[in-house]
Design a protein around this nucleic acid. Structure first.
Lengths: 206, 206
DNA sequence: GTCTATAATTCGATAGAC
DNA sequence: GTCTATCGAATTATAGAC
């Protein structure tokens, strides 16, 4: 695989992620993508096959490092059969996503908005996204179950779903007036994460 | 205005609401709408002018009765300068939306999903929706401020935003496996509402 | 108000030269 | 791998008969 190829592929994925995030899958045309990515239309089909396969590639590049980090933090948290607190679990869930925001300020909100958009895409896109995150979601539910054994699995499930919805909302709204997350300074992110964890831990225990 | 006209207009709006809810604005074509509504393509432009204006009409028919009910319940809650509890305020916020689900079982989830979809539509659609609900949102924030005077306005704002996000998520996921809202029986809705209010009130106070 | 017919564009996808 | 050129289908929107 030549350097040029990689650049072209990555360039297409990056632009597609941003446009999918802003306008959704149906609202984004391949011509929008190639125009901003400054590549040829045929290159998209050559590298990815179809628009839907391009979406798959975007989701994969986006989700895998996050899931990996989440699972690592979770494993670390459970070391020695410890039963972590709700706060610790939620912090492990939020950290990879939110710290990603701090790392690259240029596209700071793109990943977040893409995630938020994915959450509401119709089938079959929704299943593509859910598939990438399924492993991580199950693992978090399992450890939550051990921390809150008095709650039923179904209760934990819908509560955890609302936790994810809240995280996504905070990420999507970042930077907007009155949003929780106003700046991408590490301190601001840390502060926002703590407040969000407090808000949701209280709900998880209710 | 003849009966036929009204029926055609209402029919178009109803189908459009459902399709916008399921596939989003960009993912829905006017041909999808007229096909299911069994009306002529030109009728859409005759009655609404454009696809975006059709979206405006859908939002207006959808939002206005809900906002009206919300404000009425809120006024009732504040009668005699009372300072209602967080639980009472959230219940007033959730009731109109959730009880709507029970009323018409045929389209029980359409309104809910439409609302959820609207929340993430790109501009200028987002602003159209926000405009319809702005009055109600401000009123709720004001009464929340009086109930929780020790919290800053900006804190209340992002927390309230997460409350809305949670309500929308619950509505959108209704009927799915592991969702909070599984049935449209009044008792099930009541029970779900109480649990959701508990979850979020705890967070509001945190 | 409703219809047919169609204009004017844009879409995803592909063939084939280089 | 990258390009031009183009296909066939689908899109919103309109004109004009009834």
């Amino acid at each position: 695989m030549s350097t040029t190829t990689t650049d072209t592929k990555e360039q297409i994925i990056s632009v597609a992620e941003r446009l999918f995030a802003e306008r959704g899958f149906a609202g984004t045309t391949l011509r929008n993508v190639i125009s901003e990515a400054e590549v040829n239309l045929a290159a998209v089909h050559y590298h990815f096959g179809s628009k839907e396969d391009l979406f798959r590639a975007v989701v994969a590049r986006f989700a895998r490092p996050i899931v990996e980090q989440e699972l690592a933090l979770l494993k670390q948290l459970q070391a020695g059969d410890r039963v972590p607190s709700v706060e610790a679990i939620l912090t492990a869930l939020f950290k990879p996503g939110l710290e990603f925001l701090a790392q690259d300020k240029e596209f700071l909100l793109v990943h977040a908005k893409f995630m938020g958009r994915c959450w509401t895409e119709p089938e079959p896109l929704k299943s593509i996204v859910a598939g990438e995150f399924a492993l991580s979601m199950e693992a978090f539910l399992d450890v939550l179950q051990r921390t809150l054994p008095e709650q039923s699995r179904s209760q934990l499930s819908w509560k955890f779903d609302l936790v994810i919805a809240a995280l996504i909302r905070v990420q999507s709204e970042a930077g907007q007036p009155f949003a929780l997350l106003q700046s991408t300074e590490p301190e601001a992110i840390q502060e926002a994460m703590e407040q969000l964890v407090k808000f949701l831990s209280a709900g998880m225990r209710s």
